[in-house]
Design a protein around this nucleic acid. Sequence first.
DNA 1: CACCTGACTGAGAACGATTCTCATTATCGT
DNA 2: ACGATAATGAGAATCGTTCTCAGTCAGGTG
Lengths: 148, 148
Amino acid sequence: MSTATRQSWEGFALDALQDAGYRRGGARTAVIEALAKHDCAVTALDLEEELRDRDVAVGRASVYRALEQLEQLGLVQRIEVCRGTAGFERVDPTGHHHHHAICRDCGRMVPFEDKSLEQALDKVAGTMSFDVTEHDVVLRGRCDRCTR
Amino acid sequence: MSTATRQSWEGFALDALQDAGYRRGGARTAVIEALAKHDCAVTALDLEEELRDRDVAVGRASVYRALEQLEQLGLVQRIEVCRGTAGFERVDPTGHHHHHAICRDCGRMVPFEDKSLEQALDKVAGTMSFDVTEHDVVLRGRCDRCTR
DNA sequence: CACCTGACTGAGAACGATTCTCATTATCGT
DNA sequence: ACGATAATGAGAATCGTTCTCAGTCAGGTG
């Protein structure tokens, strides 16, 4: 029984992959480790660069592959951070999560959470002829630094 | 005074552009006309194809340019419909709008609206150090046709 | 422990959506 | 009608992402 005996998301993800029948590979492990360090969304290319800078160079294809597999297992969520660029962030196994406000001028991303928003989302999801598994909320506008 | 004397979004958009100092160009007008026919999001390439099929061929660059200008004026909203592809839909001047549920399997998009969701969004927007001008909600999952 | 099968990996090519470039054309104030 | 300047379109360039494929490695088996 290897499932969820460790505390961190990192350990949780490694266990989940193993349970799903994946083998243990260096590239994927490095991606998970890097992802674990971020509390908010990062792009695939940022992760690749970050890993290269730490001398743990990982092929671009492997980064995307790992992210896709993690997304499939619900361990990572993908959000659009800006014009056709995807951001990835880990999904807390407890279900606790946040959303983002993105500045249209500087691209800065500010996370926020709100209980009644979640409730409203859950309620809507329940009324649809859709098996809703996740939701994605983005507020857009100008951040305080860009409002002059 | 040319502003908002016509009823339709199409007329409203044309007037708004003129008021913003834009000249009247054939390509942009065609894009607006095509956009007016859709109640839900369309991609730029779909619009281009649609126009070509109607023998009103418009250059790809012009389609994107027009959409960008319309977005800037708040006449069109851009949403991510699927992996790095943008969908564009007109923004009702009354503020009335809907959101989308997107099927992760077939890509089908189903619009929905919910008053309490809007209220929750407005409330959150009010508490942020951000000048929020728009929001974007996407529910993801499997549509009824894809759930077997 | 050596072996084997099939999963994992990375370099680079391919791809699709979007943006850019720039020469040509059209708008509209004068 | 004229001229300054915005609008347009064809194609090239760009950028994020996905695909291909040959070489490598994990880990169950004998």
